[in-house]
Design a protein around this nucleic acid. Structure first.
Lengths: 390, 390
DNA sequence: TGGAATTTTTAGACCGATCTAAATCTTTGT
DNA sequence: ACAAAGATTTAGATCGGTCTAAAAATTCCA
C-alpha cells in the first residue's frame, strides 16, 4: 500500500527532469510543464476558443489572428493534447489491432499494411498480441475499449467464439475481423481466399498438361484444409479429372512434408504433380523427391502456397501463390475507416484474391515468371471483391 | 469543409447502431450511450468520488459499499474511460513504439518482446513503422506525444540524427533507444552485441582446432561490419592467430554469399573455416562450397549469425549465434518502465549477450547442440549486462 | 455519555481541450 | 447615419474521470 501511494504521489507532481544526461546538443530551456491552449491564448492575446478554432483550421478565424496564434504556438512549443480533445469530442483517432500472433511473417506483413493505411489517415494504432489465447484476447479487447478506440481490427485467436465482439458491438465500437473467419458471425470481414488460390495453382498444372495430380498436407477436419482441398477439387472437377492421392500431414516444418512425400513415394503410385498445403510442406516434398532421384519441376511438378521468402531461393524455385497479407491488412484498415465514418452501412465481406507466382518447380517455361491473376476464364476477380451479405 | 463539419457533427451525436447485423446471438439491449461514474453512483446510492475509490481499489471504502458498487458496475455494464482518468492524473498507461521496420523477423520478435512486458505491466502500446524514413519518424514521435504516452521506445531509422528525441526529452517524456545505437547520444539504450557474438563463434572455431579462419560479408565502412569484424579479430588476437581472407559483400540474399565464396574459392587460398556476416550469407557460402565438392562442416567449417528459421533446417544445419531480439525487446520495455517510475535515475545501457547455437556446419560432435553462453573464460557475461554511463 | 480518534463518504475544483450560443466588430444598403 | 447582415471572437458549460479538503459516520475510551 505504501509503495502504491508513494508512486501515485510521484506521478502527480510532474517531474521536470527525465532529460537526456549529457546529450551533446544545446541545453534544454523549457521545463516539462505542458503548454496548454490557455497559455497560447494569453500569449497571443485572444481567447482559448479562438486558439481551438485555429488548431482545427476553422475558416471562421481571420487570417491575421491565425498568423498571430500560429506564431505563439511555435514560440511556446505547443503540443496538442489529443486526450483532452477526445474527452469532449468523442472520437480519438485511435484504433485497436488485436493480433493472434505478431512474429509470423504473414501477420507481420498484415500489420504493416494496416499501419500504413491508418497512419495515412492520421490514426494511431494500439497493437497487441493475444498469442492465440482467447482469455487474453478478451482482456485486450476490453482494454482497447477503455482507451476509447474508434474501432477495432481483430485476427481471432484459434479458440475464439463468435461472441467475442459482443461487448464492443453493444458499446457501438466498429469492428473488422480479418484473416480468420469467425463461424456464426456475419459482420465486416477481410481475408484471403485460399480455396481460389488452390484452384489457381491446380488450374495452372492442368494447363501444363498434368492429369494425375495429388495433394499433400493439412490436418483432417480442420477448416483451412477443407477450404484448400475444396479449391483443389473444384479445379479438377471443372476438367473432369479424378483426384490423385490426398495425403494429410502436419504443416509446421518441412520435415512434415518430407515424411509425407516419402511415404507416398514408397507406396509406388507417383502422380505427375503435387499440390501442397503450403510452401513449407512443398519444400519438404521437394527434398523427398530429390532423395528419390526425381527432379522437382521435371519429373514431378510441385506447387505450394504463401510465397515465403525461402520459396524464391530454393532449387528449383517454387511455384506458389501468395495471399498478399499486406493487401489484406490495407483492405481491413480501409474497411474499418469506412465503417467508422458511417456505422450504418451494411456489413461487407472482402475477399482478397490470390496471386499466382510461377517459378521452376512446376516445370513451366523459365521465361514465364509471375502472373498477376488467373488465366482468361478466371474464377477469381482481379481486384478485391466486395460482397454484401444478405 | 462541409464534409469535415458533417463528420464532426456525426461524431458528436453518438450513434446507437454500428451493431453486428444478424449475429446469431441474443439481441443487444443497451444503446451505445456510455455508462459513466455518475450512473454507477446514482445506481448504487453513493457519490461519484466513492465509485472512483472503488475503481482504484482504495482501502478507504467499506467492504459493504464496495460490494454494492461492484454490483452496480456489473449490472450497468460499465467500461472504464482511461482517457478521462488520464486527463486529470497525468499518466496514461500508454507507451509509443516507433519501429524502423515491422516485417523483418528480427524486429517482429523484438516487438513481441516489448508487447509481452508492457502488456504484463498493464500498458498498451501504440506501435508504428517509420519505414526507415526519418521525416516520417519525426511525425510519428510528435503524434505519440500528442497522445500523451508515458514513454517511447525507438528503433531509429537509418538516417536518424542524434537530436530526434530532443522534443520528447524537453517535454519530459522518457525514451529508450533500442537495437541501433544513436551516435552522439548517451541515453537509455538496449541492444545486441554483435561483436561479442562474432567473438563467440570465432572462439568456438578456434577451440575446434581451426587456425586459418576467413570472414565473409558486410559492406566496407558501415558500422555493423566494423563491429562484427572487430569481434572476429579480437578472438583471433587473443590466440595470436593471423586473420584469413576477409571478403566483404552484400548481405541481403544468399546469392551474395554464394558469389563471394565462389570468388574466394576460385582464388585458391581456402581457409579451414569461414565466419559469415549473417546466416543468409552463410547459407550462400555453403551452396558455393557444395558446388565445389566441399562438404560444409567437414572440409570447411561455416558459421553465421542471427539464427534465422532456415539455419536449423539447412543441410548441414548451420552453427550460428542469436542476438535474441525478443530478449532485447523485453529488456527495452523493462528499462522504459523503470525510467517511467523514476525519471531521475542515471541512464542505462543494456547490452544483451549473444547465444551460441552449435549445429553441424562447424563440424562439432553431433551430440552437442546448443550452448547458452560462451565457454569457460567467456568475455561476455551470461545475463544482460547493465553498464552505467559516466 | 461526551469528546477524541478513526473510518468512511462526499462536494466541488480540476485536467485541457471542444462546443454552443451569444456578444462584438465590420460591412453593406438605403 | 442607422439597421440588417455577415464576419469574428468569446464566455462558460461540458466531457468523465481524479484529487483535495472537509464533512459525516462510527468506534473507542475515560
Amino acid at each position: 500500500m505504501k509503495t502504491r501511494n508513494a508512486r501515485a504521489r510521484e506521478g502527480h507532481a510532474p517531474d521536470a527532469s527525465a532529460l537526456p544526461p549529457e546529450s551533446g546538443g544545446p541545453q534544454i530551456e523549457r521545463p516539462a510543464a505542458r503548454v496548454t491552449l490557455n497559455d497560447i491564448a494569453a500569449h497571443a492575446g485572444v481567447s482559448r476558443a479562438t486558439v481551438s478554432l485555429v488548431l482545427r483550421k476553422s475558416p471562421l478565424v481571420a487570417d491575421d489572428t491565425r498568423t498571430r496564434v500560429d506564431a505563439a504556438m511555435a514560440e511556446l512549443g505547443y503540443v496538442y493534447n489529443r486526450r483532452a480533445a477526445n474527452l469532449r469530442s468523442g472520437a480519438s483517432r485511435t484504433v485497436g489491432l488485436v493480433l493472434c500472433e505478431i512474429t509470423t511473417p504473414n501477420y507481420a506483413q498484415f500489420t504493416s499494411g494496416v499501419d500504413e493505411v491508418l497512419d495515412g489517415a492520421g490514426y494511431a494504432a494500439f497493437i497487441t498480441n493475444s498469442n492465440e489465447d482467447s482469455t487474453r484476447q478478451r482482456r485486450l479487447l476490453v482494454r482497447m475499449q477503455e482507451h476509447g478506440v474508434d474501432g477495432i481490427v481483430l485476427i481471432p485467436a484459434e479458440d475464439t467464439k463468435a461472441d467475442v465482439l459482443a461487448d464492443a458491438y453493444s458499446a457501438g465500437v466498429p469492428c473488422v475481423v480479418a484473416q480468420r473467419r469467425l463461424e456464426g458471425l456475419t459482420a465486416d470481414y477481410v481475408g484471403p481466399d485460399y480455396g481460389a488460390g488452390m484452384e489457381l495453382v491446380t488450374e495452372h498444372l492442368i494447363a501444363l498438361g498434368h492429369r494425375h495430380i495429388g495433394f499433400i498436407g493439412g490436418v483432417r477436419r480442420i477448416a483451412p484444409l477443407a477450404e484448400r482441398l475444396a479449391g483443389f477439387r473444384r479445379a479438377l472437377r471443372r476438367h473432369r479429372l479424378k483426384s490423385g492421392p490426398v495425403v494429410p500431414c502436419a504443416v509446421q516444418d518441412r520435415a512434415d512434408g518430407y515424411a509425407a512425400a516419402r511415404d507416398l513415394l514408397a507406396a509406388g503410385e507417383i502422380p505427375t504433380a503435387l499440390v501442397c498445403y503450403n510452401d513449407v510442406v512443398a519444400l519438404g516434398v521437394m527434398l523427398a523427391l530429390a532423395e528419390r532421384g526425381l527432379t522437382p519441376g521435371k519429373d514431378v511438378a510441385v506447387v505450394g502456397c504463401d510465397d515465403v521468402a525461402e520459396a524464391g531461393l530454393s532449387r528449383p524455385a517454387l511455384t506458389t501463390f501468395t495471399t498478399d497479407p499486406r493487401v489484406v491488412g490495407r483492405e481491413a484498415a480501409r474497411l474499418l475507416l469506412r465503417r467508422i465514418e458511417n456505422p450504418n452501412r451494411p456489413p461487407e465481406q472482402i475477399i482478397v484474391p490470390p496471386r499466382l507466382i510461377i517459378r521452376q518447380s512446376c516445370g513451366a517455361a523459365p521465361g514465364q515468371r509471375t502472373r498477376a491473376a488467373a488465366p482468361a476464364a478466371s474464377p477469381v476477380p482481379r481486384r478485391p471483391a466486395r460482397a454484401r451479405t444478405a
